[in-house]
C-alpha cells in the first residue's frame, strides 16, 4: 500500500505554555474524507493549523504522501499540495472575487493553468462567476464561504483541510456548502473536515474522529457513530 495522503504521529502543540494537542495520531488514506468533530476549544482548529504550519509543533511528525513536512514553513507546505480553508473564510476583503481566486493560484506555473483552474472553480461555484468583479467585502456570508473554498481549490492541492464550513451559516446555505464539498472529490481527492456537530459531516465522511481536550477519544465509521448515542451525549452534549 502506498503512503497515506496525510499521516500524523503523536503530534503535540499549544500556545505559550498551554498544551492544546496531547499526542494526536491520524492516518488519512488517499481519496478519503475524514471528519473530525468535537466541542469548541478542544483543539480542532489548532490541529488544522498545526498541519498547515501556522502553529509550530512541540513534538511529533507530519507526513504528506510520505514526505515529512513538520519542519517546513506554511507556504512551502502549500507548494507540496496541502491547502487549508481557514475558519471564518479570511477572504482578502478589499480584493475582487477574481483576485482572491488568483491568489489561490499564486504558485501556478503560468496563466493558462490559472485560467484552467478558474474554469473549474466557476464550474463548481457559478455564483462566484456572477460576482467575479465584485469586491469580496460586499459578498454575503454564504458567498464568502464559497469564495474561501474556491480560493483553496485554486491551489490545486491534493489534501484539503476545511475548518468548520458550516460556521455561522443558515441551514439552507450549509446544505449548499456541503453539496460543494461533495463535488470537490473530483479535484481535491482527500479532505479533512472539522465541525462542532457531526450532523452534516457524517453524510459525507468516510471516517469520523471525535476529539476531546486535545486527544482523539473515538474513531469509526459514520454509521457506528450514529449507533453510538451515548458517545455523542458524553462528548458533544447532543
Amino acid at each position: 500500500m502506498s503512503a497515506a495522503a496525510l499521516k500524523l504521529t503523536a503530534v503535540e502543540t499549544g500556545y505559550d505554555r498551554l498544551k492544546v494537542l496531547k499526542g494526536i495520531s491520524l492516518s488519512v488514506p488517499d481519496g478519503k474524507i475524514v471528519g473530525i468533530v468535537g466541542p469548541n476549544g478542544h483543539g480542532k482548529s489548532t490541529l488544522l493549523r498545526a498541519i498547515s504550519g501556522l502553529v509550530p509543533l512541540w513534538s511529533g511528525q507530519i507526513f504528506l504522501s510520505g514526505v515529512a513536512i513538520h519542519n517546513l514553513p506554511a507556504h512551502q507546505r502549500v507548494a507540496l499540495g496541502l491547502v487549508q480553508i481557514p475558519q471564518g473564510d479570511m477572504v482578502f476583503a478589499d480584493m475582487s472575487v477574481e483576485e482572491n481566486l488568483r491568489l489561490g493560484a499564486i504558485l501556478a506555473p503560468d496563466e493558462d493553468e490559472i485560467v484552467r483552474r478558474l474554469d473549474i472553480v466557476f464550474g463548481i461555484f457559478p455564483r462566484l462567476l456572477e460576482r467575479r468583479e465584485q469586491v469580496a467585502r460586499t459578498l454575503s456570508g454564504g458567498e464568502r464561504r464559497m469564495l474561501g473554498i474556491g480560493r483553496g481549490l485554486m491551489t490545486a492541492g491534493q489534501v484539503m483541510l476545511v475548518d468548520e464550513p458550516s460556521l455561522g451559516l443558515a441551514p439552507k446555505l450549509i446544505d449548499q456548502v456541503y453539496d460543494a464539498l461533495r463535488n470537490l472529490k473530483q479535484i481535491t481527492p482527500t479532505l479533512i473536515v472539522v465541525e462542532e456537530s457531526p450532523e452534516r459531516l457524517q453524510q459525507i465522511a468516510d471516517y469520523v474522529y471525535v476529539i476531546d481536550d486535545g486527544e482523539f477519544v473515538w474513531n469509526g465509521s459514520p454509521a457506528s457513530l450514529r449507533e453510538n448515542a451515548g458517545l455523542l451525549t458524553t462528548y458533544l452534549g447532543a
Partner: peptide, 14 residues
C-alpha cells in the same frame, strides 16, 4: 496586497 489584508490567509495560499 494579500499579505497586507490577511497575512495568515496569504501564507495558506503559498
Amino acid at each position: 496586497r494579500a499579505v497586507s489584508q490577511q497575512k495568515e490567509a496569504a501564507q495558506l495560499m503559498g
